[in-house]
Design a protein around this nucleic acid. Structure first.
Lengths: 268, 268
DNA sequence: CATAATCATGCAACAACCCGCATAAACAAG
DNA sequence: CTTGTTTATGCGGGTTGTTGCATGATTATG
């Protein structure tokens, strides 16, 4: 039996049964479990399925995939979000970027804080709607499946019309030399407009994002006011950011000024 | 049984039942209570539910309230949604209104159907993003907390720019004399614009909504092409709708023409 | 305050996993 | 036809992940 035939069989069974087990496949296809595991690893690397302990499940379940991503380094993301809310002020206008770190921010916000939230992420909008005193404004656009996030001209136009006091930004890649970069052209364009219209910008970056560079530039490093990361970040990298004029806050420690020294002010 | 399957089962039960008990789950899934507790701990750490003494409950109030509404007559809503997808055609533009009945439609759509979806409901957008061949367009606006739905001038402007071939509408109140009415002025205004720009309008109404009237008029009864309801609807009411020129489809039966006889046509 | 249910933790058993290596088949080139 | 290379597969050994049970702590409830 050919490898490709096995792969096709696995995908077929996954589509009909909703899940596959390594042990079952081994018996059905007459090969060792190691071979099945190798198959699953390859298919998983190709993004055709999601490998789990014992077998695999369809990758098409966006919610499950998103949750898997959100679960990665959840404690760090929680700590970062909890540290970042110190920048929130009552009765301000706040941008919420898409991303799993930013999604933790609404859950960390005290329920008696009143502000206006603006976001182009449907999931962030739903999470923010839970806060009783927060007015939520949703920006529309074409929805990218991978991140469940609105993009495109409508989204950009929407953000052009609003200026925020604070903005929370998630990142795929952030580097003190290259600045903020993103693998998606469309998301990068939206982020750029958001940043342009934000007085105080706060970057939420798990430490593994530091030093990474991607294809599409969003904004140079000096644009940002605050960088919040976790304790896994090397001190040398943090020093470089401080030298670039960015306030660095390490979640879980006492670090960071907590003020807004580097912010541009806007009319209210 | 895979860990992920258990997690999915737990979340599904939590969404429909509103709570889960460790002891119950242990019996239903055939694993020890310790394993269930471990599952609940993980899901709780992922922020997907709130662990309490004896089991777990949904994480947020909004979620709880929404789930409460969504689980009311869930089988009927599923049946209505399943019956309504017969009006979907490939490569058309489809409006999705907010509402718990309409939210079941994406879950009933075959995964190989390609069309363009437009919605102002963040939750519908997330559900539609799961369908691989569907292009999702999100309409923004001010988010109403009660329904997790965008409203206001931005939303209305968004819908003014698009004309749909088909529209699925949920209703609070629908009456053959008074037409479609809504307790919320803002939602009624959005629905009115959607209906104006839709060629074939499909109403999804659980039988208990029939005959109800509220304050703000959305559109008269004769505006609509198809009404999908469940078997609980009295035959006299259905006859009145048919007399008004509306095709009536009772979910779970063979009723309804399935065509689009009464539709206005639009240019594509 | 008493009792029973529920919970967290450590531990042992077991299954699943990854890695490296050897073998064998398929392949390309001389 | 031979030889060297690539690819796929199975196997052994060490590692990791999952599960159920025992134990003592904690919590709900009358």
């Amino acid at each position: 039996m050919l490898t490709q035939e096995r792969h096709a069989f696995i995908m077929e069974k996954l589509a009909t049964a909703g899940r596959v087990l390594s042990s079952e496949l081994s018996g059905e296809l007459g090969v060792s479990e190691d071979t099945i595991r190798r198959d699953l690893r390859q298919l998983s690397a190709s993004g055709l399925l999601l490998k789990v302990h014992g077998g695999a499940v369809p990758r098409s379940n966006i919610e499950l995939e998103f949750n898997t991503r959100a679960r990665a380094q959840l404690p760090e993301k929680r700590a970062i979000a909890a540290a970042a809310i110190r920048f929130l002020r009552p009765r301000t206008v706040v941008f919420f970027d898409a991303g799993t770190s930013v999604l933790e921010v609404p859950r960390a916000v005290p329920r008696d804080l009143a502000f206006t939230a603006v976001t182009h992420s449907p999931l962030a909008a739903a999470a923010l709607a839970d806060l009783p005193l927060v007015e939520v404004h949703l920006i529309g656009g074409k929805v990218l499946k991978r991140g469940i996030v609105a993009t495109g001209p409508d989204t950009i136009d929407g953000y052009r019309k609003i200026r925020a006091d604070i903005g929370f930004f998630g990142v795929a890649c952030i580097d003190v030399e290259a600045g903020m970069t993103d693998p998606s052209h469309e998301e990068a364009a939206v982020k750029a407009v958001m940043i342009e219209n934000t007085a105080t910008t706060v970057i939420l970056a798990a430490s593994d994002k530091l030093g990474k560079v991607s294809n599409f530039v969003t904004a140079p490093a000096a644009t940002f006011d605050h960088l919040v990361t976790d304790a896994g970040a090397p001190e040398s990298a943090l020093a470089a950011w401080r030298a670039a004029g960015v306030d660095v806050l390490v979640a879980g420690t006492s670090g960071g000024s907590g003020g807004n020294g580097g912010s541009r002010s806007i009319e209210t």
